[in-house]
Design a protein around this nucleic acid. Structure first.
Lengths: 109, 109
DNA sequence: CAACCTCATAATCAAATGATTATTTAGATT
DNA sequence: AATCTAAATAATCATTTGATTATGAGGTTG
């Protein structure tokens, strides 16, 4: 985001972060992170508690912005995450969130 | 995002990414990144091309999720970014975006 | 204290976004 | 070929979100 953040680039960045700013899509990411192997769309939908159509749209979104990969095999389509990008984002953001949680907890005592 | 991504935590993470998924807020971040010093709200608004009320809301959003800091001095309020979190996020995401841009450009030749 | 400055807040409106239901496409199976 | 399954797409609706305009609250300066 730092150097040369041109206006068209801002739009790309916005799209990527938008992909991460929805509860359902984060649940999809969590599901795929916790699974070591690629999962079919149906498996993702079930594990994340989403309807079929909903899971399809969210997974497409993640693929479009480059956070997930699509891997069709016969009838079913397998999805997996793009690493290490996603895990890096995880570590950064989760670290920040839990650090904030800790300090705001300590502020209560 | 990886380990122990509980449901309440997902909501926090969502809030953080939502803060980054808006063009105006990204312009605010860019403005603050390019400035070495904290900037008053008015300065941010002008540099980012936002109205006063709009800048106020967006800056409050960034502060609320812990991406920016507020520093009132007399009449004016100075804002700055929380480092190194923001620059780390920048590097990660901008790297990804420009890498994708490059490969999709090469795909055209 | 009165006029002024900087920022925050409230109300309103238009636009974007996510969920649902239904339908369609493509591949597999009988 | 007919059927079944998995996934994508379309249409619709409710909700969320961002921009604008106007106003209010603090602090500063003449």
């Amino acid at each position: 985001m730092s150097r040369q953040l041109t206006d068209p680039m801002i739009d790309e960045v916005r799209g990527l972060f938008s992909a991460l700013s929805d509860t359902s899509r984060l649940k999809v990411l969590r599901t795929l992170l916790e699974s070591k192997e690629p999962l079919s769309q149906g498996a993702v939908a079930k594990a994340a508690g989403l309807s079929q159509a909903n899971a399809s749209k969210h997974l497409s979104y993640l693929v479009r912005v480059g956070l997930a990969k699509r891997d069709p095999d016969g009838n079913t389509v397998y999805f997996s995450l793009v690493m290490p990008l996603v895990s890096d984002l995880c570590d950064l953001v989760c670290g920040h969130v839990s650090a904030r949680a800790k300090t705001s907890y300590q502020a209560l005592r």
